[in-house]
Design a protein around this nucleic acid. Structure first.
Lengths: 291, 291
DNA sequence: CATTCTCATCAAGTTTGGTGATATATGCGT
DNA sequence: ACGCATATATCACCAAACTTGATGAGAATG
């Protein structure tokens, strides 16, 4: 007697029959003939020497053995697909450059680690820059993908996630609400946060001055925690040294910003597609109000 | 493109090659031809469109993809075998009577529950009795199996487990070491514990009297916990109301007893075989000195 | 009662997979 | 270096397994 071995093909038709509730429908779904599916079911029963199904008039009913095998089958197929996908993923090769805004660098390492696990043969390079610059680089095909922040409903790229912006100040500081308002801004020339903040203040008729600027948030941190200026960050970027300011502070509400993924023009490479999908999955926004 | 599906047969071959380290050896183990195994390996690589192995002179070496698939394969095969065995087990039907000594009734319910899970179509009946009587019933084919206690190296049956016997007394009582020693015994005419105790006392030159007897330990419990008599039990039967007596009590050491499984003469039924195996597995002794 | 739908069964054609024989390559001993 | 023994790859052939399209039986619908 040779090794007792199940047949994935038969198991797959079994669950298809169970899912659709009919042999004909299962056949359609699997792109087989009806007679094939019918015989496959019989073959499976013959191999196991037991009865998996009965007929109640027109409807099919699984015996307890059938139900039991079904749970085994689903488990096995899930593992099969996982294994298969994993092996296919290892064949995805190539190089890939992704651009991200500096402020998001902290959000992504886990995604990169996961990506490397799934696609060990892909060389991934990450560069940081301002959103405006990254978009230019993607258009120039210097980058395969770029994750950028942008104001709501700006054109270009696919929205991955929406996030609220907040005013923040050092955790132990009183907000410095003098007029003009002292702002700490980073990415001096081009950053979205700056635009958003200035628009909001202007609409509210407030005056402001740019008290400090830096290339990155880290450079700004000492100023802000010292209470010398107010900063704009996304809610997810709040650290323990930052305290968000609500409406009672008298500052105008800030709109949401969007995290968007830009892809290089024309057919993305396979690695780029995969990374794009992964980023979408992993960064998918927790439930927010939308549209 | 039809469903991406692995082939258990090929996976099995793969692990056989990995286990044996050679195509030829794998072929022998699987009862295939060498050429078959060789082609199967190629087929597997072709289906996945990747290279699983390389040759280092004569020796085979798996690529990292090969190693990876191997771990998947082992997992999948384990699940396959589990599923297969489960489905086969459900086809084992019939009735089955097992005899056990009353004092072990508490040890076995979990085994019975497990057995019923594995072999739901088997009707299992359990009867209790003294070891001597159970052995007779097995010989008379009134029982399919009997689990009995016996003195070390007595003939008949297969040893499942060896257990130490101990003298015990009520947990709050001082041992009543009068002469003659008051014993509480159950299974009056025939029990092994009694034989063992009496042999040990006789060898030690002690006198004793049977102060109380009962069909089961439960009937004796009040007497013993009240400190009116001493009882002999296996170490695993000690309850919170019993206190074991060590050598400092002056009582002679007791030998180990054996738990043995007797099978009805001539070919055991399939259910009987299975239950026998299960009992052996489940009751397998924790590490003891042996021989 | 006719129609429609689903399913089981059959014969036939095709594909797949295993076998035995043979060729190639590696390691080892002389 | 040479030849023997062992391990592997490859080929053609055959048998078994699988899919298919056709056909008929049985059940639901109206």
């Amino acid at each position: 007697m040779r090794a007792p071995t199940l047949d994935f093909t038969l198991l797959r038709t079994l669950v298809a029959i169970a899912d659709t509730g009919s042999v004909t429908a299962a056949a359609k779904r699997l792109a087989y003939t009806q007679s094939t599916v019918s015989m496959q079911l019989q073959r499976l029963e013959a191999q196991l020497t037991l009865t998996l199904h009965e007929r109640e008039g027109r409807r099919i009913r699984f015996t307890s053995e059938g139900e039991r095998l079904l749970t085994h089958a689903r488990r096995l197929l899930a593992l099969n697909d996982e294994a298969w996908n994993d092996m296919q993923a290892r064949q995805v090769t190539g190089d890939l450059t992704l651009g991200i805004p500096e402020d998001y660098a902290s959000l992504l390492p886990s995604v990169f680690a996961y990506f490397h696990q799934l696609y060990p043969a892909v060389g991934l390079k990450v560069i940081c820059g301002t959103s405006v610059r990254l978009v230019e680089q993607v258009k120039a095909k210097e980058l395969d993908l770029a994750l950028v922040t942008r104001q709501r409903n700006s054109p270009g790229g696919d929205v991955i996630r929406r996030e609220p912006l907040v005013w923040a100040v050092g955790v132990n500081q009183q907000p410095l609400l003098s007029d003009p308002l002292p702002l700490a801004l980073y990415s001096p020339g081009a950053d979205v946060f700056r635009e958003v903040a200035e628009q909001a203040l202007q609409a509210a008729g407030r005056s402001w001055r740019v008290a400090y600027t830096s290339q990155s948030m880290t450079g700004l941190a000492p100023i802000v925690t010292a209470g010398l200026a107010i900063v704009v960050v996304t809610r997810s970027m709040l650290t323990s040294s930052l305290r968000p300011l609500d409406e009672s502070s008298g500052l105008p509400a800030l709109p949401m910003i969007e995290l968007a993924l830009h892809r290089a023009p024309h057919r993305p490479s396979e690695p780029a597609r995969r990374l794009g999908e992964l980023i979408r999955e992993q960064l998918a926004a927790p439930a927010h109000a939308l549209s």
